[in-house]
Amino acid sequence: MAKKLISVTVNGKLEERAVEPRTLLIHFLREELNLTGAHIGCETSHCGACTVDVDGVSVKSCTHLAVQCDGAHVTTVEGLANKGVLHAVQEGFYKEHGLQCGFCTPGMLMRASNFLKENPNPSEDEIRMGMSGNLCRCTGYQNIVKAVQYAARKLQEAPAA
C-alpha cells in the first residue's frame, strides 16, 4: 500500500515518517515511535485506554488515523511529566490510589489533564461525566475521582508558570 509522508510533533519532538494511509494513530505511536504508554483495549472508542491529546483535544487514538495528525501536536502520557517533575494528575493518581493494573492509567491521565484545562474546578459529578469516556475495570472510579480532585487542588494552588 502506497505510503504517505507525515510530520507530527509528538511530546515536543518533530517526527517525520512515511505511513500507510490506514495506519491508526495508536499503532503509529506504539509501533513506529515505540511510545507504548497508550494502550489498545477495545478498538471501538469505548474504553479510552488509547486516549492522547491532539492539538489540545482528547482523542481516542485507536479510531484516529495517523495521517489525520499531519502537522499536529500530539501529547502522550510519556510527555506529561515536565523535566522529571510529575504532572499534578500523575501525582494525584499515585497519592489517591487511583490505579491498580495500570492498563487504563495512561489514557485516564491524559483525559484528566485535559479535562482539568476544560474545567479547572469541577464538582464530583462533573468529574464523573468528564471522565466517562475512559473505562477502568479495577478501581471502581472512586479513587480516580479523588485523584482528579487532588490534581485540581494542586493546579489551583500553583498555576503553571
Binding site: 494502550h39 502520557v77 497519592k95 495500570g102
Partner: peptide, 21 residues
Amino acid sequence: RLRKEDARFIQGKGNYVDDIK
C-alpha cells in the same frame, strides 16, 4: 503504604505483553 508499582504505570513505562517487541 502507597504502591511501589505506580511509578512506572503513571509514566507510561509499564511492560504489558503487547508492549514487547
